[in-house]
């Protein structure tokens, strides 16, 4: 079988079809898989055949697998609590993946009022949406800090506006929460007054795809792991006003 001769596209296509269908002999199957690793054309042929055929499987009536399969996957990968995907859905999750904190209706009302206040207090601007603002509130929905930055600017000002209790020997770390990704540290903030954080890029870029900010309690100097380690104390959605 001259699998690797590029002058035989029909032959390649027929082999790819049989690979996807599963009727190739074990030897030819292994051979084609090996060639696919270095030949994009072979990968493309396989993929389009898999696409043609795999849709046929949609009609098979589903069968729920036993919970031990998920547990075995978790054990093998060293992830999760091994208690099953269903409990993973309702069980404790990293706080940054459940933004219910800042989506709560009670808080939304407070934040909207505060944002409106900020908007009214701000000097008139030529174009709307020049400032990025996040109002960070705790679990009691009371605003505790406000973060603001001009869209083209790099200085993010974080001002404490409510009483904030920080246990001795701990620090507050501010995180950007990109959609679907791990939190990104923006820096440490203070429990009183204003802290100015320099962003790595102009705010529009630095906060692109970031719907929310949050503050967690960390060891002095910030999280040692690059990811939040302590509880989230405050969080809030980003608005462009």
């Amino acid at each position: 079988m001259k699998l690797d001769r590029p002058d035989r596209p029909e032959r390649l296509d027929a082999l790819a079809a049989q690979y996807a269908l599963g009727t190739l002999s074990p030897r030819a199957r292994r051979r084609l898989a090996r060639i696919a690793r270095r030949e994009p054309a072979v990968v493309a042929a396989l993929r389009s055949w898999e696409l043609r055929l795999a849709g046929l499987a949609d009609a098979i009536p589903p069968v729920t697998p036993p919970a031990r399969v998920w547990n075995a996957i978790c054990t093998k990968l060293g992830i999760g609590d091994g208690q099953g995907a269903d409990s993973a859905e309702t069980g404790p999750a990293p706080w940054w993946s459940s933004l219910g904190l800042w989506r709560g209706l009670a808080f939304a009302g407070v934040a909207a009022a505060l944002l409106l206040g900020l908007r009214l207090m701000a000097p008139p601007v030529e174009e709307p949406g020049q400032t990025i603002v996040a109002v960070l509130a705790g679990s009691d929905a009371k605003p505790a800090l406000v973060a603001t930055v001009e869209r083209g600017g790099r200085i993010l000002a974080v001002k404490a506006i409510g009483p904030i209790a920080v246990p001795p020997g701990r620090a507050l770390e501010l995180w950007a929460l990109p959609a679907g990704k791990d939190p990104r540290s923006l820096g440490l903030v203070a429990a009183t007054g204003v802290v100015r954080i320099t962003l790595p890029a102009p705010a529009d870029d630095a906060l692109l795809g970031v719907p929310a900010l949050a503050i967690s309690l960390e060891p002095p100097g910030g999280s040692p792991t690059g990811k939040p380690t302590g509880p989230v104390l405050y969080s809030g959605g980003i608005e462009r006003i």
């Binding site: 098979i60 589903p62 069968v63 729920t64 998920w70 995907a85 859905e89 993946s97």
Partner: peptide, 26 residues
């Protein structure tokens, strides 16, 4: 899948929840 590629365990668990019964049947 995109979140799973970024090692998001919760997304992976949800992916399993949504697709495993079909894939197990296959």
């Amino acid at each position: 899948l995109a979140r799973t590629a970024l090692a998001d365990e919760r997304a992976f668990a949800e992916l399993y929840r949504q697709t495993s019964s079909h894939l197990y049947a296959v």
